[in-house]
Design a protein around this nucleic acid. Structure first.
Lengths: 150, 150
DNA sequence: AGCCGATCGTCAGCGCTGCTGACTATCGCC
DNA sequence: GGCGATAGTCAGCAGCGCTGACGATCGGCT
């Protein structure tokens, strides 16, 4: 481990690997979703909103792990494209319930298909079991806990 | 795969997993390296510079996968901390050969130890074989090719 | 020798993210 | 009725990566 001569291969560094794997996936995903006029970020928001009971902006932000101030811009964008709409919550009028429009739901369905295909292609470089193992390992690292899927 | 009721678990999304795994590692790494006055980014630069023959800024940038304009700021920072110095290349006076100072080398050695320990701890949530498999899989995805380590 | 296109480092400027801090409207509680 | 806490919004800042421009220098051509 002395600093000279030994290349200290960049691809041994976890930080480098995670950064570039993420980067490559983001690019791939963006390219695949561009024709639908959206991206992975928005799609994730749509997916969260579509799942289960209607959420307030802050609840949605929490699930996605983004800041509530960031969520404002995200919802702005969705609303501008008529994919979602803010509805003042009658129960608590401080909250904006964000609801998908029909267009939002349609886009979500189509885009999710694209996403699934994109993920498969992205992982195609790996043997199937390795890909599954990767997912499981990332889940542990990303969440800090072993929360196996439902 | 219809959009309602089914939670479409966020942790099934490759993008989410890669992003948050990366994020968590970056934070962990930053915390660990802060006492040394550096971070994973700088450390990677130092490591690249220390490996083998002296590099020009652009060569170093290429290896790290960053832009040459970004490299300017990176080298600025290293120079400000007396960890590296620019030396006009005598062979091609357009190029800045970037060389580690003794201080740079010392910091690199200490920081690399910290990095290795940090990676081990970060991966401690996974059984050892899984951690190795993760690394291998990420290497494939990050580089787009199966370049097994040296 | 002189010229010209290409290359390296630098800088200014833009866009995207993510944050902090402040403000308004509203809530829940005393 | 009053008061602290909370949701959404907005302005502003910092980090990062990029583009586009510039001066200095190189290398090849004539």
């Amino acid at each position: 481990m002395t600093s000279d001569a030994r290349p200290e291969q960049l691809t041994d560094r976890l930080g480098y690997l995670l950064k570039h794997a993420h980067l490559r996936y983001t690019e791939t995903s963006a390219r695949a979703l561009a024709p639908l006029g959206t991206d992975g970020r928005e799609l994730a928001v749509l997916a969260v909103l579509a799942a289960g009971a209607p959420l307030s902006q802050q609840e949605a932000a929490g699930r996605l792990g983004v800041d509530r101030t960031t969520m404002v811009a995200l919802v702005d964008a969705l609303e501008a494209k008529s994919l979602a709409e803010r509805v003042r919550s009658p129960a608590d009028r401080r909250k904006n319930t964000v609801r998908l429009t029909d267009r939002g739901r349609q886009l979500l369905d189509r885009a999710e298909e694209v996403r699934l295909r994109t993920e498969r292609e992205f992982l195609a470089a790996l043997p199937a079991p390795d890909a599954a193992a990767l997912r499981a390992a990332l889940r542990v690292l990303a969440t800090g806990a072993d929360d196996r899927d439902s």
